Simulated scan of single mutants.
Amino acid sequence: MSSFRPAFRFAPSPNGLLHLGHARSALINARMAQAAGGRFLLRIEDIDATRCRPEFEAAIYQDLGWLGLEWEQPVRRQSEHMQTYRGALERLGAMGLVYESFESRGDIRQALAGRMDWPRDPDGAPLFPFPRAAMSDAERARRRQAGEPFALRLDMTAALERVGRPLFWDEAGAPVAARPELWGDVVIARKDTPTSYHLAVVVDDAVQDISHVVRGADLYEATAIHRLLQELLGLSAPAYSHHTLLLEPDGRKLSKSRGSESLQALRANGMTPEEARRKALR
């Protein structure tokens, strides 16, 4: 008899306090795991050492416990697995798919000045305007040895030539052709951090045997990058589902950066866990 159990995860970053949008995602994952007789895991995505703080991580545990959620132990913390991500990055580098870009944000702004027609990625940021061939390997080596900061980018054209256009499966089980080229040569690591969100998340999902990735609709397009990296690294692909988002009265999604009311504040103002669950799942 097979011992396979579906696995779902909630993976917040401790760079601020959780709000009802986070509660929605956590509750949906926990309920789906329970309905499938599966596992519910918590992952702390704390690779950004400049923004992630211990008090926010502690608040995550408090908030989820207040909502009545339980999760498997131990909790995976990305900051403890940098060497694993470095190994994945080195594999991509050995395939010739990674290159250093030394151009600053200012360089990019200057290159795009007046270029209102320049294509943008699904998040609205302009695609990287400097082709890999614009800088020689010798110049990259010189600047690297000089200690200049750089980003490590995935050569999207070369990556797609290697594995073709990947598929993922939507909520109804239908295949969807991913479009990673919409992101251009996406950043997958930096000089001082051997990973990015995109690289770490696919490695973590594989290590933790995640079978179902259930997250907000704002990450739908990012699935294309994740499927491409899974194909390049020979990792299994979870089933993907993207739930609707909770919105502010002005129509924007709830956001830490814009100061959406936190679960901590709602609790302090007298909201009960039952009310929070009801509002999160409306």
Rank of each mutant, 00 (worst) to 15 (best):
V75Q: 13
M82L: 15
D48W: 05
Y220S: 11
M271L: 14
V163M: 09
L152D: 03
L182D: 06
R278Q: 15
L127M: 08
P149Q: 09
L112G: 07
P129G: 12
K279E: 13
R53P: 07
I28S: 14
V201P: 00
D170L: 00
K256L: 09
G68H: 12
R109Q: 11
L263H: 05
E171T: 04
M32I: 06
L89I: 00
E45L: 05
M32A: 15
V163N: 05
R267T: 01
H243S: 04
I60C: 09
R252H: 14
A58C: 07
F56W: 12
R91W: 08
R165M: 10
D204N: 03
W66S: 03
D107A: 13
E161Q: 13
A217H: 04
Q62S: 15
D137Q: 15
H198S: 12
F130K: 07
P74K: 09
E55W: 11
I44K: 04
R43L: 03
N29H: 13
L152H: 02
P175N: 04
L152G: 02
L247Q: 12
L281D: 05
H22F: 02
A35I: 01
M156S: 06
E80C: 08
A280G: 04
R258G: 00
A178K: 00
T223N: 07
T50N: 15
G65T: 09
W71R: 02
G96V: 00
G87R: 13
A133G: 10
F40P: 09
P54A: 11
A237E: 08
R267G: 09
I47C: 04
A133K: 09
R105C: 11
L266F: 10
E90L: 10
A134E: 14
R115C: 05
S262F: 05
Q34M: 10
